[in-house]
Every structure is written in structure tokens, then in C-alpha cells.
Amino acid sequence: MEDIIEVENLTKKFGHFTAVDNVSFKVKKGEIFGFLGPNGAGKSTTIRMLTTLLRPTSGRARIAGYDLEAQQDQVRRYIGLVAEKIILYDRLTADENLQFFGRLNNLKPAVIKERSDRWLRRLGMEEWRNHQVGTYSTGMKQRINVVRALLTEPDILFLDEPTLGLDPQTSRLIRDFIAEVNETGATVILTTHDMHEAETLSDRVAIIDCGKIITLDTTENLKKMVKNISNPTFEDVFLTLTGNTVRDIASSRITSTSRMWHGRPTNRVR
């Protein structure tokens, strides 16, 4: 299988703090690639770099065959993103939001309409399409947000904790939808703290901790690594590999004003 993402020695430093440390991995075309790690491990930073939102300090990556640094615009044509924060305007309706982002991606209004019709129906949001997004619940917003990320029918879909804070019903709906989208050929990079989600969806999983990838394998093989527990769950795998200590990490991307109030960001506390 051909590699759609190739990451080589990717590093991101914020001042003295290294958020992502010399990370290398490959994602195969058409797979769901789970990207797990404790809070502050560097998952989101990696995703932001791979989606051209953050400039790597060093290292390189090829996305869909294009160089991340030199061919940003080409890279952007192949990716869709569901980020930590919902990318929708509260004062626009779902339709207006989708038209706006679709047009920015050079899609014709009719194409946007046809695609949103299809997915809004699938996600049960059709009757809400003319309401302002600000009036929605979190679950409703996230459904529209996923449709937005899919408008361009991207080859690669980055999902940064897509089910965070959602009720079980919406989580299930979105999870099923991710699997469907993947079946149509899209490659999915998924970060989540939901171990069950990671296990059921992912073909392969990379676990990142302290900015470094500590393991990368199929869920089955990862489970086999846990020797001291019989019939280990995926959570056991995660805890065995990353330890039981609760992480306390201050993001170095804390802004100057908040730094003024809270002091300098501490590095990690072990």
C-alpha cells in the first residue's frame, strides 16, 4: 500500500520547550491512523503542522506527495480538518457556513449544495440547516463541523478529538460516519482520548508521549505487548506504555498576557 503521509524528523519548539521531538512515521493510503497520547504529548501540534497551520522548527513531511513546507497550497487541496475548536461561525446558518468554506475551496455553489444535502441528511441535520449555528448544541455543531471538513471530499481527513464532549448517541453517529467516509477511500488521522474509539476505528495506532512517538503498530499487536495482564483492554495498553502518572503540562503557547499572570510556563512535571 502506498504511503500518503511521510513524516521525517519533524520537530516543533516553542522557545525552549520542545512540543514535538524528531518524529517520523508514515500513514498508508486509505487507513485510519490512530494518534494517541496523554494531554500535552504533542498530538495537536503535530496535526497543526501537518495541516499547514504551524511551521515546523525542523524536519520535513510529504502529504499526498507534496512537500509540506514548499507546496503548502497543494497540500491544502488534499486535506480536511476537524480541529480542537469548532470551525464554524455562530452567527451564520449551517448552510451559510458550508457555502462560505466551500467557496474558499473553489467549489461551485451547486456542488456545495449537493454534498451538504447528502451529508446533512446522513447526520440528521437537514432541518436545522437554516438556523444560526450559535443556537445549536455542541453535538449539532460538531456534526456540521464534520460536514464542513468533508466538503472538498479530501483525500486525507485530520480529526482532532472529534467526539470530545459529545453524548454517546452523537459520538456513535460520528464514529460510524468516520468509518463510512474511510470506506469511500479517505485516509483518516484520528486523535482521541477514548480508548474504545481508538481501538474500534484505527487500523494502526501511534502513541506519542513527551513529543516522541513511543510505539506504532496495529491495535492487535499493541495488545500483545502487555504481558502482565491477561486479556488486556486498549486502555491497559495505553497506560502500560505511557505510565500512570497524571500529566501536568503548561503549554508554552500560553500568551504573553496570561504568562504575566501565571508566571512562566513550567516544563513537564514528572
Binding site: R76, L81, I87, L88
Partner: peptide, 13 residues
């Protein structure tokens, strides 16, 4: 702050 800028920035514009 709201994160919507990301949506604009990842568009090929």
C-alpha cells in the same frame, strides 16, 4: 481565538 481562522487558513487561498 475562536479557532475559525484555522478553517480559512487551511483553504488553498
Amino acid at each position: 481565538e475562536q479557532g475559525t481562522l484555522d478553517g480559512i487558513l487551511i483553504s488553498p487561498i
